[in-house]
Every structure is written in structure tokens, then in C-alpha cells.
Design a protein around this nucleic acid. Structure first.
Lengths: 204, 204
DNA sequence: TCGTCAATCAATCACTTGATTGATAGATCG
DNA sequence: CGATCTATCAATCAAGTGATTGATTGACGA
């Protein structure tokens, strides 16, 4: 007889913590931090609240766990993409593509990021976990602009760091803007390209 | 003897509601929505919790009140500034200035806006209250770009709406970025100016 | 002066929520 | 088998937390 079905599971702490972090992430995406309840997380994992507290002692630790998992995800993802060999313009296109993919196919991730960033204002633990992610993104984009200015793909008077802020701000802001259709995203991308690219001077 | 000092005040509902909205706004700025408690609001106004509920029946209504007051503030402020007579470039500079002023001198307002926008995702009431503010801002900036393209101040291939999203996103994103110093804000502004302005063609 | 009503508060309710306790079942090892 | 450790849960606690109740106070009109 199969002893598989509905046998009371006993997982090790690592797996449980992963499952808990995942469930917590889903719930944050659904209801925000305000609506995050330990009972809900336990229910979604399929364990008792006490068991949850056995693996993750406090709610603060839980939030730290989510933030850490998030950071780990981003770090892992950025390692998968070696793009130094591409041209600045191509790398910029990849940034567009990555964001679009995240926005339309991993909406949860973006929503949780947003919640975490908001909470980072008041929560030192989260702030510490989130800051490297943001910095990394800024650095990556700024590096693209530095290279692009050097090889003449972009405007010579481009300020790489400021342009990076503008670029990232525009993308993130897209998600909060009035029109989040793919068509409008493309218009925004086109505008960003024109904003940094060398102008074909408007000759009369 | 003076019956003035510490006489138990009795205000009318309009004044009380205003005071409650103001206190709630402060507390949201301080602790976020997550930390907003009716008791704290009542304490800050200097009234009993029951009195607060007498004037504002539910917490939901309270949040709606804050959102409404916020919208009213913005609407009033935009009426005070008649700028149609200015040039597109000048109007753009005013946008920079207004944002800078809000960022550095009314940080509360911006923090609450941010909280409200985040919550608007899940709260229809707030979404309805916030959307007009965002739309208005977008329209204002887009109108600047339309005029600027028409009179040749800005690039001919500028997409006013997309540029407006980029512009607003960049400003809002500044507040979340790694460097929020006035110096860096000025660099961002400069970059935004170059992004929309007609290029002085890089002649060799 | 008396009745009515808006405004207020102390006390309390009903429910939520993070966390703890004490006990139990399975695994692991000697 | 027996000791011990890990993982689990039912039950419960203590501190909130939004909201209500019943009574009180003062203003104002009749």
C-alpha cells in the first residue's frame, strides 16, 4: 500500500523556511505588509502557527527572511546574465526586456519589491537588505551609459549616474502610472532611447 | 477667575474632521499605514476615541478622509499657480522647483502620498481619490511638452505623454534613490533638461 | 427654566494577532 | 529496545484594536 498519500509530512528546517518565505511573499503581494498575518502564512504552508514560530521565531525575522530571499533571487538572476560582451545599446535593450518580463510575468515580485521599498523607510533591517539591490541596478545601468558615451552610442553630455536614476525612475514609475499597457511601455522605452541617444540634428 | 485656561473645548464637526485628518496625516507620515491607530489619532487631536468615532464613523472613512483632504490640497495648490503665460522651459523649471520644495520642505506630504499610492493598489476608495491627482500632474507636464515641441524649445520627436511619464517617474524615483542630496537633484534636473531639449548637434 | 441636541468621555465589548506552552509522533543512534 | 532530538499541533495567553454603550456637559431656542 502506498504510504504516500496524506501522510503527515515532516520537513527539515531549510525546506520549511523556504516554503514559509515563499508563502509570505505571495501573501505580501496579495494583501501588502499591512495584511500579512502569521496565521495566514502557516495556513498556506499547511502547518500550525506554532510550527511556523518554531522555524522562524518572530515576525521580524520572517520579514527579514523574505527580504533576504528577495535579495538572493536578484543576485542569482544577475549572475545568470553575462552581458559584458554586448554593445551598450544592446545591453540597454536587455534592461527594457528584463523589466517588461518582470512586470508582466512576475508581477508578484515587483509588488513585493514595492512594498519592501516602502517599508524600508522605517525598517532598518529591510533597508539594509534592499539597498544593495537598488544600488546594483543603478550601477549596472550607469555602466551601460558610461560605455555608451565612450563609444559614441549615447550623447556626449550624458551624465551616466543621473541618467541611470532617470531611467530606473521612469521604469518603476511606469508601474504606477495611468497606462500600464505593453503599447504604452513601448512608447516609454522609445522615449528613453531618444533621451539618451545621439540626436540626428534637426537639419532644416 | 479665568475660565479660559484648559476649558474643555467643544468644536463643530467640520473643524474636528479637519483636525482629525491632519493628525492622521502626520501619523501616517511617521509610522505608515501599518502603524496607524485610531487611539493615536484621537490622542494627538486631544479627544477621546469615542469622540473620534462620533465624527468619523469607521477607520475606512478616516482613510478616505485623509485621501480626500490630500486631493483637495493638491487641487487648491494647482489653482494658485497660473502659468499658462510662461514659456514651456520656464514652466518645466517650475515643475522642478515645486517638486524640490515639496521634497525638502513638505516631506510629510510626499511620504503620505507614497503610502497612499501604495495602498491604492488594493483599496478602491484610495485609488479613486489618488488617480485624479496623478492624472492631473501627467496632463500638466504633457501639456508643457506639447507646447515646447510646438514652439521648438524641445525635440521635435518628443512624445509628450511618454516624456511626461519619464519626467514624473524620474522625480518620484529620486526620492527612493540612493542619493537624495540637493546636489544630486540638480544633476537629475540637468539630465532631464538635456533629455528633452533640442540638441546642439555634436559638431566635430 | 426646561427640553433638545451636538459633542464629549470612561468603560467596555468582541475580536484579532503574535507568541508561548505542554504534549505527542517520528526519526536516529547506541 | 530505550534515550534523545526534531518537527509538529491543540490550546491558550497577553496585548492590543476598532468600535459601541450609556452617561455627562454645555449651548441654544421656546
Amino acid at each position: 500500500m502506498t504510504l504516500t498519500s496524506s501522510a503527515p509530512k515532516r520537513e527539515n528546517t531549510d525546506d520549511r523556511r523556504r516554503a514559509i518565505a515563499s508563502a509570505a511573499r505571495q501573501l505580501i503581494a496579495e494583501k501588502g505588509f499591512e495584511g500579512l498575518r502569521t496565521r495566514d502564512i502557516a495556513a498556506r504552508v499547511g502547518i500550525n502557527v506554532a510550527t511556523l514560530h518554531y522555524h522562524v521565531p518572530t515576525k521580524e525575522a520572517l520579514i527579514g527572511l523574505v527580504a533576504g530571499a528577495m535579495r538572493e533571487d536578484f543576485r542569482a538572476q544577475s549572475l545568470v546574465r553575462p552581458r559584458a560582451h554586448l554593445s551598450p545599446s544592446e545591453r540597454l535593450e536587455h534592461e527594457f526586456y528584463d523589466f517588461q518580463e518582470m512586470f508582466y510575468e512576475q508581477r508578484d515580485t515587483l509588488a513585493v519589491m514595492s512594498e519592501l521599498m516602502e517599508r524600508a523607510r522605517r525598517d532598518e533591517v529591510i533597508h539594509t537588505a534592499m539597498r544593495p539591490i537598488l544600488l546594483k541596478w543603478h550601477q549596472m545601468v550607469a555602466a551601460i551609459f558610461v560605455d555608451g558615451v565612450a563609444d559614441g552610442s549615447f550623447r556626449a553630455d550624458l551624465d551616466p549616474e543621473a541618467a541611470s536614476s532617470m531611467f530606473i525612475g521612469a521604469l518603476v514609475g511606469f508601474g504606477r502610472g495611468p497606462d500600464t499597457s505593453p503599447q504604452y511601455f513601448e512608447r516609454l522605452c522609445a522615449e528613453l532611447r531618444r533621451a539618451v541617444r545621439v540626436q540626428t540634428p534637426t537639419r532644416n
